[in-house]
Amino acid sequence: MWSWVAHRVTGMLIFVFLFAHVLDTALVRVSPEAYNTVISSYKNPIVGLGEAGLVAAVIFHAFNGVRVMLVDFWSQGPRYQRQMLWVVVGLWVVLFVPFLVRHLMHVFA
């Protein structure tokens, strides 16, 4: 139940971000200056932490999505759905923690 809620919340968050991300990237078509001005306004610790949160959401949504597919298609999927949630959490930690260290090094460098 909570993994279902988290899948919706992270999915909604990523969708809203995608809207903004395509709009600001479209500024490359306006001029290099316009794009660089907006992108440099993102280069601060607050947006940097927001980016980390977004990556956290993407990693969870990706692995939980694989879990949903395994529940749907793998004959043993429904039986192991709870254990697979712990695998999702484990993989999330393994991928996100190194990413966070690397990203914060860039943000605070």
Binding site: P32, Y35, V55, F99
Partner: peptide, 21 residues
């Protein structure tokens, strides 16, 4: 996308018009 843009090189700091171009 995340690996090339945020992890490799200088990460988020490298992203500007020249990088996208």
């Amino acid at each position: 996308h995340l690996l090339v843009n945020l992890v490799l090189g200088e990460g988020i700091k490298q992203v500007d018009f020249a990088f996208v171009a």
